[in-house]
Amino acid sequence: MTSQPPLLEIRDLKKYYPIKSSILKRTSGNVKAVENISLDVYEGETLGVVGESGCGKSTFGRTVLGLEELTEGTISFKGENIGGLSEKQLKKFKKEMQMIFQDPFASLDPRQRIGDAIEEAFIIHTNLSKREREERVRKLLTEVGLKEEYYERYPHEFSGGQRQRIGIARAIALNPTFIVCDEAVSALDVSVQAQIIKLLKKLQESHQLTYLFIAHDLGVVRHVCDRVLVMYLGAAAELAPANQLYNNPLHPYTKALLSAIPRPIPGKKKERIKLEGDLPNPSNYPSGCPFHTRCPLATAKCKNIIPEWREVEKGHFVACHEV
């Protein structure tokens, strides 16, 4: 996997939202949504991103796609820098990088027939005639397991799972190489989740897709992903191949997170690590290691010095002084 050049190289990515004081519009502080993330995404893999609500997973995904302007850092896609490009310059990359959204009820325009919604992709990026576009859309609909005739229907006529399929059809319409699945299955019930995940895997094989799979369901992530990134308060805590991460977590936050997975094995009770205190406010970012306020192993060093993002084993990165 590491032999080929990465599809996506992210270096020191930061995304801050300035807090403006009301009258003079002066920036009085920053909400640090993404803090210093560096990683590579390889072609054909599924990289999971997990973390609790509000830890910046979605912002990270959107910033990578250029939907949010990055504050600092670089992103290169197939060797070309795409960070900080203007809308126009980004257009050719948007063909290759797409997104599947969390809420299948909000991600489709209620006043647009679903065929037209998918067709937009072709209107924006190709010069196909109306008939060719329609043909492509119908093909896409069957490819994601829907019927061609659904072309004419409006979003409210579909169930959540079906809508998510429509969202997927729209995302793969232009044959992208990289797709961010932003909690793509979180809003669905379990049986439908399984169907959608199966569909995503099938499409990954047939279209050679690379996924950035953002989720908070650790069970799903283990099942779907090749590698997993654990985020805490906008910063990367640990990155490792899925099996390694689940069997041998190194970062104390990852350990706590994994201990929260319910176990279906009766009798064998596993110690659950309970974290003290609340998630700090990202506008009042902790000094040193962002996790030190809640970490059971925290020392004075953790309070003052930001831990380095280092590779402890091959492919296993962690940001912690105590490992």
Binding site: L67, K91, K94, Q102, S107, E120, I124, H125, G167
Partner: peptide
């Protein structure tokens, strides 16, 4: 989210405003 979806498809502002926001 559907506006964001259109942005991620690379739609121009004018298209988003007229075809999606106005209706």
């Amino acid at each position: 989210e559907y506006i964001l979806a259109m942005k991620s498809l690379g739609a121009k502002d004018s298209r988003i405003i007229i075809k999606h926001i106005l209706p």
